[in-house]
Protein backbone atom coordinates (compact mmCIF):
# COMPACT_ATOMS: atom_id res chain seq x y z
CA UNK A 1 0.00 0.00 0.00
CA UNK A 2 1.25 3.45 -0.87
CA UNK A 3 1.75 5.68 2.17
CA UNK A 4 3.20 8.77 0.54
CA UNK A 5 3.01 9.74 -3.03
CA UNK A 6 4.77 12.83 -4.34
CA UNK A 7 3.60 13.68 -7.82
CA UNK A 8 5.43 16.20 -10.02
CA UNK A 9 6.08 18.58 -7.14
CA UNK A 10 7.91 21.87 -7.68
CA UNK A 11 8.71 24.40 -5.02
CA UNK A 12 10.76 27.56 -4.47
CA UNK A 13 11.10 29.85 -1.46
CA UNK A 14 11.25 32.73 -3.90
CA UNK A 15 9.85 33.04 -7.39
CA UNK A 16 13.35 33.29 -8.88
CA UNK A 17 14.79 30.00 -7.69
CA UNK A 18 13.34 26.50 -7.77
CA UNK A 19 14.50 24.36 -4.89
CA UNK A 20 12.51 21.31 -6.00
CA UNK A 21 11.87 20.74 -9.68
CA UNK A 22 9.27 18.25 -10.87
CA UNK A 23 9.94 15.77 -8.08
CA UNK A 24 8.01 12.48 -7.99
CA UNK A 25 8.40 9.43 -5.82
CA UNK A 26 6.29 7.04 -3.79
CA UNK A 27 6.84 5.29 -0.51
CA UNK A 28 5.17 2.06 0.56
CA UNK A 29 3.69 1.67 4.00
CA UNK A 30 6.19 -0.04 6.30
CA UNK A 31 9.13 0.67 4.04
CA UNK A 32 12.46 2.23 4.96
CA UNK A 33 13.57 4.74 2.36
CA UNK A 34 16.81 6.69 2.22
CA UNK A 35 16.79 10.11 0.60
CA UNK A 36 20.33 10.93 -0.43
CA UNK A 37 21.76 14.12 -1.83
CA UNK A 38 24.46 16.67 -1.29
CA UNK A 39 23.98 19.54 1.11
CA UNK A 40 21.74 22.15 -0.49
CA UNK A 41 20.08 19.70 -2.90
CA UNK A 42 16.65 20.29 -1.32
CA UNK A 43 16.24 17.34 1.06
CA UNK A 44 15.07 19.38 4.05
CA UNK A 45 12.78 21.39 1.81
CA UNK A 46 11.17 18.19 0.56
CA UNK A 47 10.60 17.05 4.15
CA UNK A 48 8.98 20.41 4.98
CA UNK A 49 6.54 19.84 2.14
CA UNK A 50 5.90 16.28 3.30
CA UNK A 51 5.09 17.61 6.78
CA UNK A 52 2.70 20.22 5.44
CA UNK A 53 4.89 23.08 6.73
CA UNK A 54 4.92 24.54 3.23
CA UNK A 55 2.83 23.99 0.13
CA UNK A 56 4.14 22.94 -3.29
CA UNK A 57 3.96 25.58 -6.01
CA UNK A 58 2.71 22.85 -8.30
CA UNK A 59 2.12 19.12 -8.10
CA UNK A 60 0.45 17.11 -5.35
CA UNK A 61 1.41 15.17 -2.27
CA UNK A 62 -0.90 12.49 -0.91
CA UNK A 63 -0.67 10.75 2.43
CA UNK A 64 -2.52 7.47 2.75
CA UNK A 65 -4.54 8.31 -0.34
CA UNK A 66 -5.70 11.73 0.87
CA UNK A 67 -4.34 14.99 -0.47
CA UNK A 68 -2.01 16.66 2.00
CA UNK A 69 -3.39 20.17 2.34
CA UNK A 70 -1.95 22.37 5.14
CA UNK A 71 -5.05 24.58 4.97
CA UNK A 72 -7.34 21.69 5.86
CA UNK A 73 -7.25 21.84 9.67
CA UNK A 74 -9.24 18.67 10.28
CA UNK A 75 -6.99 16.66 7.98
CA UNK A 76 -3.83 18.16 9.48
CA UNK A 77 -4.86 17.20 13.02
CA UNK A 78 -5.21 13.59 11.93
CA UNK A 79 -2.04 13.81 9.85
CA UNK A 80 0.12 15.25 12.66
CA UNK A 81 -0.56 12.14 14.74
CA UNK A 82 0.79 10.00 11.97
CA UNK A 83 3.90 11.76 10.72
CA UNK A 84 6.69 13.06 12.93
CA UNK A 85 10.25 14.23 12.42
CA UNK A 86 13.68 14.02 14.03
CA UNK A 87 16.18 16.77 13.20
CA UNK A 88 19.90 16.90 12.65
CA UNK A 89 20.97 19.26 15.41
CA UNK A 90 20.16 17.77 18.82
CA UNK A 91 20.97 21.12 20.43
CA UNK A 92 18.38 23.10 18.53
CA UNK A 93 15.62 20.51 18.54
CA UNK A 94 14.85 20.52 22.28
CA UNK A 95 13.51 23.63 24.02
CA UNK A 96 16.16 24.40 26.68
CA UNK A 97 13.55 25.86 29.06
CA UNK A 98 11.35 22.77 29.17
CA UNK A 99 11.66 19.56 31.11
CA UNK A 100 12.07 16.38 29.10
CA UNK A 101 8.62 15.26 30.26
CA UNK A 102 6.89 18.29 28.73
CA UNK A 103 9.05 18.13 25.61
CA UNK A 104 8.03 14.54 24.92
CA UNK A 105 4.41 15.12 25.95
CA UNK A 106 3.91 18.12 23.65
CA UNK A 107 2.39 16.11 20.77
CA UNK A 108 0.12 14.31 23.24
CA UNK A 109 -1.13 17.60 24.69
CA UNK A 110 -1.39 19.57 21.46
CA UNK A 111 -3.06 16.77 19.52
CA UNK A 112 -5.29 16.02 22.52
CA UNK A 113 -4.41 12.36 22.51
CA UNK A 114 -6.34 10.54 25.24
CA UNK A 115 -4.62 8.33 27.79
CA UNK A 116 -2.16 8.52 30.65
CA UNK A 117 0.40 10.93 29.23
CA UNK A 118 2.91 10.31 31.96
CA UNK A 119 2.86 6.58 31.25
CA UNK A 120 3.12 7.21 27.51
CA UNK A 121 6.18 9.43 28.06
CA UNK A 122 7.77 6.74 30.21
CA UNK A 123 7.08 4.13 27.51
CA UNK A 124 8.58 6.37 24.82
CA UNK A 125 11.68 6.93 26.95
CA UNK A 126 12.17 3.22 27.43
CA UNK A 127 11.65 2.60 23.69
CA UNK A 128 14.62 4.84 22.97
CA UNK A 129 16.73 3.30 25.73
CA UNK A 130 16.59 6.07 28.34
CA UNK A 131 15.77 5.77 32.04
CA UNK A 132 12.38 6.96 33.20
CA UNK A 133 14.01 9.50 35.54
CA UNK A 134 15.18 11.45 32.48
CA UNK A 135 11.66 12.90 32.38
CA UNK A 136 12.36 15.27 35.28
CA UNK A 137 15.54 16.75 33.84
CA UNK A 138 16.38 19.50 31.34
CA UNK A 139 18.02 19.14 27.88
CA UNK A 140 21.38 20.64 28.96
CA UNK A 141 21.86 17.69 31.29
CA UNK A 142 22.14 15.30 28.34
CA UNK A 143 24.76 14.52 25.70
CA UNK A 144 24.15 14.92 21.98
CA UNK A 145 23.31 11.25 21.51
CA UNK A 146 20.95 11.24 24.49
CA UNK A 147 19.26 14.38 23.20
CA UNK A 148 18.75 12.68 19.88
CA UNK A 149 17.09 9.79 21.72
CA UNK A 150 14.82 12.30 23.47
CA UNK A 151 13.92 13.86 20.12
CA UNK A 152 13.12 10.38 18.80
CA UNK A 153 10.98 9.71 21.89
CA UNK A 154 8.98 12.88 21.17
CA UNK A 155 8.58 11.79 17.55
CA UNK A 156 7.22 8.33 18.40
CA UNK A 157 5.20 9.08 21.54
CA UNK A 158 1.94 9.63 19.66
CA UNK A 159 2.42 6.38 17.73
CA UNK A 160 3.04 7.76 14.22
CA UNK A 161 3.00 5.57 11.11
CA UNK A 162 5.72 7.61 9.44
CA UNK A 163 8.98 8.81 10.92
CA UNK A 164 11.06 11.35 9.03
CA UNK A 165 14.69 11.66 10.04
CA UNK A 166 16.54 14.68 8.64
CA UNK A 167 20.28 13.95 8.90
CA UNK A 168 19.40 12.62 12.33
CA UNK A 169 22.82 11.03 12.87
CA UNK A 170 25.04 13.43 10.90
CA UNK A 171 26.02 15.53 13.90
CA UNK A 172 26.96 12.56 16.09
CA UNK A 173 30.30 10.90 16.66
CA UNK A 174 30.82 7.47 15.14
CA UNK A 175 29.92 5.26 18.11
CA UNK A 176 26.83 7.28 18.95
CA UNK A 177 25.92 7.34 15.29
CA UNK A 178 25.93 3.54 15.12
CA UNK A 179 23.77 3.29 18.24
CA UNK A 180 21.18 5.75 16.93
CA UNK A 181 21.13 4.02 13.54
CA UNK A 182 20.45 0.76 15.38
CA UNK A 183 17.64 2.43 17.30
CA UNK A 184 16.11 3.81 14.09
CA UNK A 185 16.48 0.40 12.45
CA UNK A 186 14.51 -1.22 15.27
CA UNK A 187 11.84 1.49 15.03
CA UNK A 188 11.77 0.89 11.28
CA UNK A 189 10.21 -2.50 11.93
CA UNK A 190 7.25 -0.77 13.62
CA UNK A 191 6.74 2.22 11.32
CA UNK A 192 7.65 3.62 7.93
CA UNK A 193 10.94 5.45 7.92
CA UNK A 194 12.13 8.15 5.55
CA UNK A 195 15.76 8.67 6.34
CA UNK A 196 17.48 11.71 4.88
CA UNK A 197 21.24 11.71 4.68
CA UNK A 198 24.19 12.79 2.63
CA UNK A 199 25.97 9.67 3.92
CA UNK A 200 25.38 6.76 1.55
CA UNK A 201 27.07 4.35 3.95
CA UNK A 202 24.46 4.90 6.65
CA UNK A 203 21.61 4.69 4.14
CA UNK A 204 23.03 1.42 2.81
CA UNK A 205 22.98 0.01 6.33
CA UNK A 206 19.48 1.19 7.16
CA UNK A 207 17.27 1.54 4.11
CA UNK A 208 15.68 -0.97 1.76
CA UNK A 209 15.04 1.63 -0.89
CA UNK A 210 16.99 4.70 -1.94
CA UNK A 211 16.11 7.96 -3.67
CA UNK A 212 18.90 10.14 -5.05
CA UNK A 213 18.34 13.89 -5.21
CA UNK A 214 20.69 16.07 -7.21
CA UNK A 215 20.21 19.84 -7.18
CA UNK A 216 16.42 19.90 -6.90
CA UNK A 217 15.74 16.85 -9.09
CA UNK A 218 15.43 13.15 -8.39
CA UNK A 219 17.94 11.43 -10.64
CA UNK A 220 17.60 7.83 -9.54
CA UNK A 221 15.62 5.64 -7.19
CA UNK A 222 15.18 1.96 -6.50
CA UNK A 223 16.29 -0.92 -4.35
CA UNK A 224 19.26 0.22 -2.27
CA UNK A 225 21.37 -2.87 -3.00
CA UNK A 226 20.62 -2.68 -6.69
CA UNK A 227 21.28 1.04 -7.05
CA UNK A 228 24.54 0.78 -5.13
CA UNK A 229 25.66 -2.24 -7.15
CA UNK A 230 24.66 -0.85 -10.56
CA UNK A 231 24.21 2.91 -10.40
CA UNK A 232 22.63 4.14 -13.63
CA UNK A 233 22.91 7.91 -13.33
CA UNK A 234 26.34 9.55 -13.61
CA UNK A 235 25.65 11.58 -10.47
CA UNK A 236 24.99 8.42 -8.43
CA UNK A 237 28.17 6.90 -9.84
CA UNK A 238 30.16 9.93 -8.77
CA UNK A 239 28.50 9.94 -5.37
CA UNK A 240 29.44 6.29 -4.86
CA UNK A 241 32.96 6.78 -6.08
CA UNK A 242 33.48 9.48 -3.47
CA UNK A 243 32.44 7.23 -0.58
CA UNK A 244 35.49 5.86 1.20
CA UNK A 245 35.19 2.07 1.01
CA UNK A 246 36.16 1.54 4.63
CA UNK A 247 33.34 3.59 6.10
CA UNK A 248 30.84 1.71 3.98
CA UNK A 249 32.03 -1.59 5.41
CA UNK A 250 32.25 -0.17 8.95
CA UNK A 251 28.69 0.97 9.20
CA UNK A 252 27.39 -2.22 7.64
CA UNK A 253 29.05 -4.59 10.05
Amino acid sequence: MTLISVDRVSFGYTAERRILDDVSFAMESGDTVGLVGESGSGKTTLLRLLLGLARPDSGTITFDGASLDPRNAAFMRQFRRQAQIVFQDPYSSLDPRQKISSIIAEPLRSLRIPGDHRQMVADALSSVGLDADAAGRYPHQFSGGQRQRIAIARAIVAGPRLLLADEAVSALDLTTKIRIVELLASLGTRMSLLFVSHDIGVVAALCRRIVILERSRIVESGDTAEVLARPQHPYTQRLLASVPRLSLKDTRS
Binding site: L51, S93, L94, I103
Partner: peptide
Protein backbone atom coordinates in the same frame (compact mmCIF):
# COMPACT_ATOMS: atom_id res chain seq x y z
CA UNK B 1 14.28 29.46 13.54
CA UNK B 2 15.08 26.79 16.11
CA UNK B 3 14.17 23.20 15.29
CA UNK B 4 12.11 22.90 18.47
CA UNK B 5 9.69 25.42 17.00
CA UNK B 6 9.30 23.24 13.90
CA UNK B 7 8.88 20.24 16.19
CA UNK B 8 6.15 22.12 18.06
CA UNK B 9 4.37 22.83 14.78
CA UNK B 10 4.53 19.21 13.64
CA UNK B 11 3.29 18.31 17.13
CA UNK B 12 0.15 20.26 16.33
CA UNK B 13 0.77 23.27 18.61
CA UNK B 14 -0.88 26.49 17.45
CA UNK B 15 1.16 29.67 16.98
CA UNK B 16 -0.29 31.40 20.10
CA UNK B 17 0.60 28.31 22.10
CA UNK B 18 4.10 28.22 20.61
CA UNK B 19 4.60 31.87 21.60
CA UNK B 20 3.37 31.20 25.12
CA UNK B 21 5.29 28.00 25.88
CA UNK B 22 8.40 28.28 23.69
CA UNK B 23 9.09 31.83 22.55
CA UNK B 24 8.33 33.90 25.66
CA UNK B 25 10.10 31.59 28.15
CA UNK B 26 13.21 31.55 25.94
Amino acid sequence: VMDYITAARTSGSSWPKIVAIHVLPN
